[in-house]
Amino acid sequence: MIPEIEYLRPGNLQEALQMLSEYGETARPIAGGTDILPGFHINSRRFRDIKTLVDISNLPEITAIREANGGVYIGGAVTFTDIVKHPLIREKYPMLADAAAQIGSVQIRNRATLAGNFVNNAPCADSVPPLLVYDARVTVRSLRGERHQPLGEFLLKPYRTQLQPDEMVTEVFLPPLPAGFRGEFYKLGRRRGVAISRITLAVLVKMDQRVIEDIRIASGAVTPIGARFPELEAQARGKTAEADFLKELAIQLGEQILQRTGLRWSSAYKLPVVQQVFYQLLRRICQ
């Protein structure tokens, strides 16, 4: 059931920030509403205190995708459908387009936004692993000013980020990717259609013949929140991509996930399988 709420529709970003500032803790921006409305319906604790919704879905300042500084800026209220369709993202950041195309259903993607996905910060948020390996930075605005932060720092723990009640994510910046990287986004669900992720992986690699010159690795749904694996990446740089080493790397990934996540109800399945599919993925992209 949707509780009694006040609905506000600011005409521009400045007005939106004023409303957030004024209403504070009890206000929440709403864009696609694909997390908030189901959350209301099941009476989720996370949404019980909301009294005011500030609709940011149509603010012109945050609904565009633009090319600048060699990279791409994606507005905070850009939907996954917009991302899937955008030629520049498909060309330069294909793993993000891939991940976006596998989120929910068409109906969900038509409403759900990129920023909403990682601000909600569910462990299984599909956009997070690709954003992490693309070194995405978020722009956060409030009446107090603007700050920029790597996504990895912005995300704190499940369903928690550094976002303050008066703040809003206005943009995500994907910096230019050095030449020679290729990668793959992997998603495992229980079903093919409209699946909630059991495991996601995003891996970018730059090969020099058989040698891994550079690599970026991120996972989702197997760690408390989507995360990079810097130690693993450091360990892989300069190594030859032989099957034996890739297996080692996959085992390391398993160990690190176990360390970060501890044992969960799902560990007996997920932990071995993530190593397995990570190895498969490395075999595919380290050719």
Binding site: A243, D244, K247, E248, A250, I251, G254, E255, L258, L263, S267, A268, Y269, L271, P272, V273, Q275, Q276, Y279, Q280, R283, R284
Partner: peptide, 27 residues
């Protein structure tokens, strides 16, 4: 096959959840 039940049964350090190299399947 990635036979997790067998792995669990044979579990030793570092635990049943970490694979050994021989457990991996080739593409």
């Amino acid at each position: 096959r990635l036979d997790l039940a067998a792995l669990e049964e044979a579990a030793a350090n570092p635990g049943p959840f970490i694979l050994h190299k021989e457990d991996f399947l080739e593409p």
